[in-house]
């Protein structure tokens, strides 16, 4: 099961714990929060249902993600130009979900590079990320039938310091001119520095992050960008495993429900301005249903 699903389940568990705490203080169940339980149950049932549908051979369509499709193109470009592919998994540790999502994409990049006999270089800012990345790339080369081509020296630790790391990457990009730069993970101020440097050396750039503040920089300076949820969906898209696809579909349904509730809330809030008698319904909606 993908990490983002785990997070969601943790959140549900947290809610359940809060409910249990309330139950402990006031009784078996806090009936005021019952609608929230309904939402949680809906989410769990949706995920389980779609996983079972996927496992029984039902078709779950995930729309094409341009950034992931472009990975082959980026690696192909590096191969034709006789240069390397630079992969940057963000500046956070493996405890950060975005880093793990980035490592999932690294697996795809490494497998493609193994098939094309291209070189993938992964400088990292955290030692644990280095270990994880090495294992991932090694597995990918093995899966591609090219274990001999794996070189662990290409995945190395630089520094924990944010701008020390960025300075190294920028210098390396200018000196070695990789043909493709792929940024997948959690980024802060360094996003624009990296993307602009990559653009200036004529590299194909693919970025993916869930940091809303950095997305505009990546979109403007990179060739392809995985935006927020797309980045998390990459795992399901790449693996095509029924559990991940079903989980993705279930979460999408939960999001549709959330959008519906937001819309309904907005309508109610507007309506109460004209029909004061709806205030009770609005209070129930905001106070009870949304907790």
């Amino acid at each position: 099961m993908p990490c983002f699903s785990l997070t969601s389940l943790l959140l549900v568990a947290e809610e359940a714990a809060a409910a249990a705490e309330t139950a402990e203080s006031t009784g078996l169940l806090n009936m005021d929060r019952l609608p929230l339980l309904g939402v949680a149950v809906f989410f769990v049932v949706a995920v389980v249902f779609w996983i079972s549908v996927a496992r029984s051979g039902g078709e779950i369509n995930v729309r094409e993600i341009a950034g992931l499709k472009a990975i082959e193109e980026a690696v192909g470009r590096a191969t034709e130009m006789g240069r390397s592919v630079l992969f940057v998994p963000g500046i956070q540790d493996v405890s950060e979900i975005q880093t793990i999502a980035g490592i999932t994409v690294l697996s795809k990049v490494a497998k493609t590079a193994a098939e094309y006999d291209a070189k993938v270089e992964v400088p990292v800012a955290r030692t644990l990320v280095m270990v994880t990345a090495r294992e991932t790339v090694q597995e990918a080369f093995l899966a591609a039938g090219r274990p001999d081509a794996y070189n662990e020296d290409l995945i190395y630790y630089v520094t924990d310091e944010q701008f020390g790391y960025v300075a190294y990457l920028s210098g390396m990009m200018v000196r070695e001119k990789p043909a493709a730069c792929i940024y997948m993970g959690c980024f802060y101020a360094e996003s624009l520095i990296l993307a602009e440097t990559g653009n200036s050396i004529g590299a194909i750039q693919v970025a993916g992050t869930a940091m809303p503040a950095q997305l505009p920089f990546f979109v403007a300076a990179c060739d392809y960008t995985l935006i927020g949820e797309e980045f998390y969906a990459a795992s399901a898209y790449l693996s095509e495993s029924p559990a991940e696809l079903g989980s993705l579909k279930g979460q999408d349904l939960a999001k549709v429900l959330a959008f519906g509730l937001i819309g309904l809330g907005a309508l109610l809030a507007t309506a109460t301005q004209f029909v004061p008698s709806l205030q009770g319904a609005f209070d129930f909606f905001t106070g009870t249903l949304l907790g």
Partner: peptide
């Protein structure tokens, strides 16, 4: 394999 030019 061609570099793209993008805007927001």
């Amino acid at each position: 394999g061609v570099q793209q030019q993008r805007t927001v």
